[in-house]
């Protein structure tokens, strides 16, 4: 009798301990490092913890490093919410890594721009553009349009991402009357840009280093990074190109499939999409909110990548079709490496 009571009490205490520890377990959010993590932590995670009592921890890394980690942890994800780019979210989804979003659990999503619904697995958190940014102290003649990148005075001065050449490939195609689906139209134009390229970068940090040191004073750059550099005192001009729009990017929030804290993950994403948080994100990142009820600070209105109305989403940014991008990126990358990167 005594033995039974002892066993029962041990089992009950173990169950209670496990329940307590699960309730206190942190929500793990996967995001890029630096300014990205800092802003998400300040604007979303802290109010979330204050509201729910659930601490938030971060897994920080590059877009594709985190994808690789998620893949090996399939079935028992190490994170609950993942921020990534919209086309990479398709890769997560293709391997069953993401929860199909139940919008009823995201009431704030009713106010989102329709462009924010990237797929049934991913919802846009903020928008930006890949555009031209340059050091005004090192480039004397102002750059105002994409076609200026081909100017002779910019020879050996430009840097661009090599991990994802989709922006410049699409722009070259657009300048030649094509688009991302008929990207071959821009190949010859892009080849002509080769002598102008000083370096390629694989990470946001490298992109910013190249601009800070002046090794590459002109960049095809993420607008959010450009604003961040400007805040650090780098004399940078961010261009709203007049010939073709910047390439619009939408970073998305996703809920990992098979996680232990799915309900909390939904609450976190819903908070991200809420009007107040979106306004703070827009001000923090200098990005466009996806919640159309969120206001944009007056100083940011009209800046590259900051869209305040549904019309601006269409007029001031070019959205590459996510599926085309995810499918063609390997081919683009191979062509780009062979024809542009190769010495």
């Amino acid at each position: 009798m005594l033995r039974r009571a002892l066993i029962a009490s041990i089992v009950l205490s173990a169950a209670a301990a496990s329940a307590t520890s699960f309730a206190g377990a942190p929500l793990v959010v996967s995001v890029w490092g630096g300014n990205w993590k800092d802003t998400i932590e300040r604007v979303v995670a802290k109010p979330y913890t204050a509201q729910t009592g659930i601490p938030v921890e971060f897994e920080v890394g590059g877009t594709l490093d985190r994808l690789a980690k998620a893949r090996v942890a399939k079935g028992a994800p190490l994170v609950d919410v993942t921020f990534t780019t919209s086309h990479v979210a398709r890769l997560y989804a293709s391997d069953g890594l993401l929860e199909k979003l139940d919008l009823a659990k995201l009431p704030a999503s009713k106010d989102l721009a329709k462009e924010a619904f990237r797929s049934e697995h991913a919802v846009g958190g903020w928008a930006y553009v890949y555009t031209i940014a340059y050091r005004a102290d090192q480039v004397k003649t102002p750059i105002t349009k994409w076609a200026d990148l081909w100017r002779p005075d910019l020879k050996g001065k430009i840097a661009m991402p090599d991990f994802d050449p989709s922006h410049i490939i699409t722009i070259s195609a657009l300048l030649e009357g094509g688009n991302e689906k008929t990207w071959e139209k821009g190949q010859e134009r892009l080849r002509q840009l080769k002598p102008s390229i000083a370096a390629f970068f694989s990470t946001d940090a490298r992109s910013q280093d190249l601009m800070k040191t002046g090794e590459a004073p002109v960049e095809v750059m993420l607008s959010i990074n450009a604003f961040h550099l400007r805040e650090q005192g780098v004399p940078i001009t961010i261009v709203e190109p007049t010939d073709k729009p910047g390439i619009l990017g939408i970073d998305v929030a996703t809920v990992m499939a098979g996680g232990q804290k799915t309900k909390n993950a939904y609450e976190f994403v819903n908070m991200l999409l809420s009007k107040d948080v979106q306004e703070q994100l827009a001000a923090g990142f200098k990005a466009g909110p996806t919640n159309m009820k969120a206001g944009v600070p007056a100083a940011l209105k009209g800046q590259p990548g900051v869209f305040a109305t549904p019309a601006e989403w269409k007029e001031r940014g070019y959205i590459i079709d996510d599926e085309t991008r995810a499918t063609l990126l390997p081919k683009w990358k191979e062509w780009f490496n062979a024809n542009i990167v190769a010495r």
Binding site: G62, L64, D65, A68, A159, D162, F163, D164, A198, A199, F200, F201, S202, L210, E215, L329, P330, K333, E334, N337, V341, A342, R343
Partner: peptide, 18 residues
Amino acid sequence: GGRVKMIANVVKDLALDS
């Protein structure tokens, strides 16, 4: 600067970029 590719860089390009 992305312009000099050795084997490990190509492996990374193929795996993590493409």
